[in-house]
Design a protein around this nucleic acid. Structure first.
Lengths: 195, 195, 195, 195
DNA sequence: CGGTAAACGAGACGGTACGTCGTGTCTTTGA
DNA sequence: TCAAAGACACGACGTACCGTCTCGTTTACCG
């Protein structure tokens, strides 16, 4: 009823998987510019036109491959203290994005000029997944009175996540292990002197 | 002393200018992917080999063009209050990024995979120029007792610039006019409740 | 049996023809140096990569074009007298070489340095085709007792064709109409005095 | 009187020599296509414009280099029998042109399209030097009654030299040591049966 | 003996062509 | 109908030489 059972030979579901596997390997090896339709086809043992039948272009393949590759592990065990959990979350995030695959995420984001459906989907999956966890923990902390009242939550999230992504992408400064901890602490206390 | 005047026919300085002009136009029109050597040569009225004599690839041209396109105006008149000046500086930076050319800066940043000479040069020119002004103003503010003592200056700079670049690169939220003001205010006060 | 019908889209036979036509025109107009891949592509209305799919380089195209340009007409009607037929064959060959296209054959022959596949192919097609006819006629003449017995056939062929190609390549003397006749006559009689 | 002693710095004669040496090396190594102005300049330690000051193009350099490289040794000692001397002369010639440098002579000849001054000079020097020796010996033989009377000398020369150059350039058959001897013998006797 | 004229090295420059790579579309054959 | 294989037009790549040019420097001769 919903899918009226299209006639003819059905699509081989193994193809999607093979192409996405190839994309992940290529991403890890050579970053986004290495993910060409040509290379995907060769590595997946699939013809180029077949790939075009499944995705509109190579960026779409890369995005889908990336989405299904990052952050597969669940959140760490909550300790009950939201800000402690947030610190752990940030540490884990920094670690994940320090990987070569993580580096190419930036390229993917920036390379997708304009506001296509895919860009949005990717952003949702990729940034918002982490951001959602952060938002949950901040809301929890606010409820326990550990945050200033009437805080702009989105701005706060940017204040915390921004510097992290910034250092990762720019590489202008070391990303020491204590970085996220010190960052969170500074964000909490503020840079103005105590009155 | 100085440059010992290299032998041979001197380079025609008009060529650099013409190519960079062409690059700026192409950047504005079609973003980074439009900046091809072919298009540059055609638009600047210069042969392709000549462009390769001046830059190693199209990304290098785009970077240089972008660098010389942003922040062309000098710093605004100082008001004497460093934090006020900082707020103005951030507003201006955000405005530069909101331009169509600014959008392609994201692509440029992310496209430069790895630690090439160009990445570093671009980072120095493009990020560090702004960052240097920020550092100057923060140091001034600290001297006037408007900042918490013994602040980690680099971390503080990331706390302020990070969210700005983050929104630029991700595009998950507007770069509204009030954004930098609210950001600076939040960073100053911190997100923890006042004791 | 035969060709097992290769998979994939079949080659467009019109392309070969168009490129070879273009090559012949270019050969006639500007000689071998005019036969560039670029010019071929432009004149044949075909993309450059496509030409490379069919031939390894411009010399190969020129050779094939030349091969199919010379000796297009079949052998003249045999008169029954092999040596008379041979004289006619040589006259025709000399005439073909005297054409502007014929001039570039020299360049083609000499330009192919070393023993590449192409050199051999060209030699087979271009020289051996004529030589084969000569061999046929000489064998016939020998059978009729018009040649000295136990003649080294290959040496004899060189004795006849050599001077012809020599004048073509060197250009030190005219390829006059009577040249081949006088040449054949001299070869037959020998230069030593009759005993 | 003739040369009114031009003013300015005189040309450095060492340059001509250095460039011609370089040309000979390049000819031997890679044939005519290796003789580029660029390579000549690099190898001779001379600037490109300087080469253009001395020769109009690379072919001119190659020709001059080739001319001064071949057949430097004098003729072998005459035995008194002209036809024996001719056989020795042909053997030596075949040997000289079997060298890599000899191979490129063909390319040079064919590459020089049209009838420039240089082509003629080259032909004179290169072919006619050998041909002149052949003509001398044939004339001598004729005077001694060893040749048929009223022979077309130029045609006879082609009959002898043609097959030799032909095999050298085409390589369609072995160039055995006995080749020139058998060739001369066949030319003398003719291919027609003795009456 | 100092001025002038050419030779020379170095390298920039506009051209032209090279051979390659990747794209996205298409046309076959076979499953 | 899907999939494979491969042909094709297109566009850009980065490189190699070409022949010309503009410099600054060097080396002769000639007034």
């Amino acid at each position: 009823m919903s899918t009226p059972k299209s006639p003819g030979r059905p699509r081989n579901p193994a193809i999607r998987a093979a192409v996405l596997d190839a994309a992940r390997e290529l991403l890890a090896a050579g970053g986004l510019p290495a993910v060409t339709i040509e290379a995907l086809a060769a590595r997946a043992g699939v013809s180029r036109p077949t790939i075009y039948r499944h995705w509109p272009n190579s960026a779409a393949v890369a995005m889908e491959a990336f989405v299904s590759a990052t952050l597969p592990s669940g959140p760490p065990k909550p300790t009950g203290a939201p800000l402690t959990d947030l610190a752990a979350h940030l540490r884990k995030l920094a670690q994940a994005f320090a990987s070569p695959t993580g580096r190419s995420a930036a390229a993917l984001l920036a390379a997708s000029q304009g506001e296509t459906e895919l860009t949005k989907a990717f952003r949702n999956h990729f940034i918002m997944t982490a951001r959602h966890e952060g938002r949950r923990l901040l809301t929890l902390a606010a409820a326990q009175g550990q945050l200033r009242p009437r805080l702009d939550l989105e701005l706060t999230l940017d204040l915390i996540y921004g510097p992290l992504y910034f250092r990762l992408l720019m590489g202008h400064a070391e990303l020491s292990k204590s970085f996220t901890d010190r960052l969170l602490q500074l964000a909490l206390a503020g840079i103005a002197p105590r009155p």
